[in-house]
Amino acid sequence: MITMAGLILLVQALALFMATPMEINEMQAFEDPTQVSHSIYYIGLILAFTVLVLIAIKKNMTWLISLFIYFAVLSTLYYVFFALLTLFPSLAGLEVLVSTLLSAGLTVLLYKYPEWYVIDIVGICIASGVSALLGISMSVIPVVVLLLLLAIYDALSVYKTKHMITLAEGVMDLKLPILFVIPKQRGYSFLKENFAEGEKREAFFMGLGDAVMPTLLVVSASIFMENGGPITYPVLGAMLGTLAGYFALSILVMKGKPQAGLPFLNSGAILGFFAGVFVSGSAIM
């Protein structure tokens, strides 16, 4: 569980690092980052994707899910590598070619050999890249609204409708790279993991979204806050708040029942952020 917390911190640190080159290269998704409507837009996309995945699982069209996920992985890795390569003047003019080769190679490796450490490495790249891209695209208020809406949605989908549990189990059977995997013992193989109902899990699992969503606030605070920067009180508060929410979540997870992660992680990030704002006296932009 401590290792998983370390992965969250690593994602947040890398997202902060990648935010600057992505902002310089104008990779923002929106021209006006202050519009709260962007939050509604992303909620709509998430709901639409959830419906499509549930239909694909029911219709036994899991190949369609796999195709979409691997395309998303390839695209995200390209943006990540492109942003990082722009930091090296010696590679000027070669960013597109090298980024394409690296992202394609890593995606093929992931498809051919989705062992847990390959999935985790790719997961770190994807989670930090998506967090940086969305974090520089939305200012603090839209991000806070998005995190609150997602926390409510996650709670309803896990505890009320339970469709998120169905979705997670269906996707995990495909062994797709949309989660972090931490083995409980040496010699573990994700390729041999049995996801049949009632079988004991030999590893801890956490969806990439649980790392991405609170990290949006970390990145947004570093970019859009007055007197912003990589490490300020609001940024540090959001990071520490995420960890506090994670450990509260872990206590319940250890009891063996599925739990909605975002209510804990998002609320921790938001409370920590506002605590940092209070301490620093910074203005929210």
Rank of each mutant, 00 (worst) to 15 (best):
S267Y: 01
E169H: 13
L102Y: 10
V219P: 07
Y117G: 09
G129N: 00
L149M: 09
F224A: 01
L249R: 06
M61T: 08
A56Q: 03
G268Q: 01
A196T: 08
I231D: 08
V235N: 14
L216P: 00
Y188I: 02
F273T: 08
L97E: 10
A127S: 10
E169G: 09
N227M: 04
D32Q: 12
M22R: 07
G187T: 02
K112C: 12
V51K: 14
F190Q: 05
V80E: 07
S37H: 06
F224H: 03
Y117R: 13
S99W: 08
P142D: 04
Q12W: 04
Y233V: 08
A196F: 03
W116I: 00
T76Q: 07
F49M: 07
A168S: 11
I152R: 00
L271E: 01
Y41H: 13
G105W: 04
F88V: 12
H38K: 01
E31G: 12
M206Q: 11
T20K: 13
L191K: 15
I119Y: 04
V218H: 02
L174R: 12
F180R: 02
L102I: 14
P263N: 05
C125Y: 14
A5P: 10
M213G: 04
T86C: 14
A83F: 07
K112I: 02
S75K: 14
T50R: 11
Q259M: 06
S157C: 09
